[in-house]
Simulated assay, not measured.
Amino acid sequence: MEITKIIETWRNSKIKLNEGAELTEIIQLEEQLEYKFPETFKQFYTRINGFKDSDWNEHMFSIFPLDRIKNEYETSENKDFIPFCDYLINSHQIGFSKKNDGIYINYENILGDFNDKVADSFELSLIEILNNSDKIY
């Protein structure tokens, strides 16, 4: 499934989506976080900049806009994890590890660790979220 289909599915579900970000905003965030996002992340965020007003899908997952990604990272003690999504108002977060390839769950508020791998890529993690896979819990 490609990024366009994922976005259209969310639009059809009446999830409030932000307008896309400028590529320069993504590059600036990369510099601030000292992390290079994959191209699929950049393609996604130039199309939509996360869910608007912390809206969530029917399974209570919310995709962060860039400013929330930055804020969540800056306020976290774990500087090896960059979240882009949360479940159940921050019960746990889904995001990038600076040390490992792939997408992970961070139960920082509960366990202080993020060793559960959700997917091998950003796009595949969005599919897991869209499909309400057991991997994202």
Rank of each mutant, 00 (worst) to 15 (best):
T4G: 11
T4V: 13
K5L: 12
I6W: 07
I6G: 10
I6V: 14
I7M: 07
I7G: 10
E8V: 00
E8F: 00
T9Q: 12
W10R: 02
R11C: 05
R11F: 06
R11V: 07
N12F: 06
I15M: 03
K16C: 06
K16V: 06
N18Y: 02
G20N: 05
E25Y: 00
E25T: 03
I26N: 03
I26A: 06
I27P: 00
I27W: 00
L29H: 01
L29G: 04
E30H: 05
E30K: 07
E31C: 12
E31R: 13
Q32S: 11
E34Q: 12
Y35R: 04
K36E: 10
K36G: 01
K36A: 11
K36Q: 10
F37T: 08
F37G: 09
E39G: 05
E39W: 05
E39V: 05
T40L: 12
T40A: 15
F41I: 05
Q43E: 15
Q43G: 10
F44D: 02
T46Q: 12
R47P: 00
G50R: 01
S54Y: 11
D55Q: 00
D55M: 01
W56C: 14
N57K: 06
N57C: 11
E58Y: 08
M60I: 03
F61C: 03
F64L: 03
L66Y: 01
D67W: 10
K70W: 04
N71R: 14
E74V: 03
S76T: 02
S76D: 12
N78S: 06
K79Y: 05
K79R: 15
D80A: 05
D80I: 04
I82Q: 00
I82A: 01
C85E: 03
D86N: 11
D86L: 02
Y87L: 03
Y87H: 13
L88Y: 09
L88K: 10
I89S: 14
Q93R: 14
I94E: 00
I94Y: 09
G95T: 00
G95A: 07
F96M: 08
F96R: 08
S97W: 06
N100V: 08
N100Q: 15
N100W: 13
N100H: 15
D101H: 11
G102H: 01
Y104S: 03
I105T: 00
N106H: 04
N106P: 00
Y107W: 11
Y107G: 08
Y107C: 08
Y107M: 12
N109D: 13
I110G: 05
L111W: 10
L111R: 13
D113T: 15
D113A: 14
D116H: 09
K117I: 05
K117F: 01
D120C: 05
S121C: 07
F122I: 02
L124Q: 14
L124N: 15
S125V: 00
I127A: 09
E128D: 10
I129G: 02
L130F: 08
N131V: 15
N132Y: 09
N132T: 11
N132M: 10
S133W: 05
S133I: 06
S133K: 10
D134S: 14
D134R: 12
I136C: 07
Y137Q: 11
Y137L: 15
Y137I: 08
Y137K: 12
